[in-house]
């Protein structure tokens, strides 16, 4: 089961924070390919619902991957989308995760973002791999949650 220990969460966050700062991104996110938000830089500048953003990004990447397969089985490595003001750059990490940089086009540009991602790439991959190794060794994690503790009725009006 995919899980993060506090020190791993901290390590990931630190990488994403440094990357966001150096690349002058508004926000950097790490998402797994099924759409879960794994970590993100601390960026007050970004307000969109980041859980929804993660889900849509994973859908977008999955669709583009399927598209590139259809066009001849090439692997998709990265994607770029832009709005009037923002650039959104997505790159696959180890074929399992998606790293996303959202930047203001007046503040940064694709070139800087890509150079800085290159700089932090191997550190990020190493960190993720060691997390995966640790999970593999662990037989089971328990979040110690009791389904009976959750009153789902309180969710609804």
């Amino acid at each position: 089961m995919l899980n993060l220990k506090p020190e791993e969460d901290k390590a990931l966050r630190e990488i994403l924070n440094n990357l966001a700062q150096e690349s002058r991104s508004k926000m950097v996110l790490l998402i797994d390919k099924s759409g879960q938000l794994i970590s993100r830089s601390e960026s007050p500048a970004f307000s969109s619902d980041d859980v929804t953003f993660a889900s849509l990004t994973a859908g977008n990447v999955a669709a583009s991957e399927a598209l590139s397969k259809l066009l001849g089985d090439k692997d998709l490595n990265h994607m770029f989308t832009e709005t009037e003001e923002e650039g959104i750059y997505m790159i696959l990490i180890d074929g399992k995760f998606i790293l996303v940089s959202i930047f203001d086009k007046r503040v940064s540009n694709l070139g800087i973002v890509r150079v800085k991602i290159k700089k932090f790439y191997s550190k990020l991959v190493d960190t993720l791999r060691s997390i995966e190794e640790r999970i593999k060794k662990e037989s089971a994690v328990s979040a110690d949650i009791n389904p009976e503790d959750i009153d789902l009725d309180t969710l609804f009006e």
């Binding site: 995919l2 993060l4 506090p6 979040a143």
Partner: peptide, 11 residues
């Protein structure tokens, strides 16, 4: 696969 973050206490 559920994703658990023990730092932010999110599942």
């Amino acid at each position: 696969m559920p994703f658990i973050n023990f730092a932010t206490k999110e599942i």
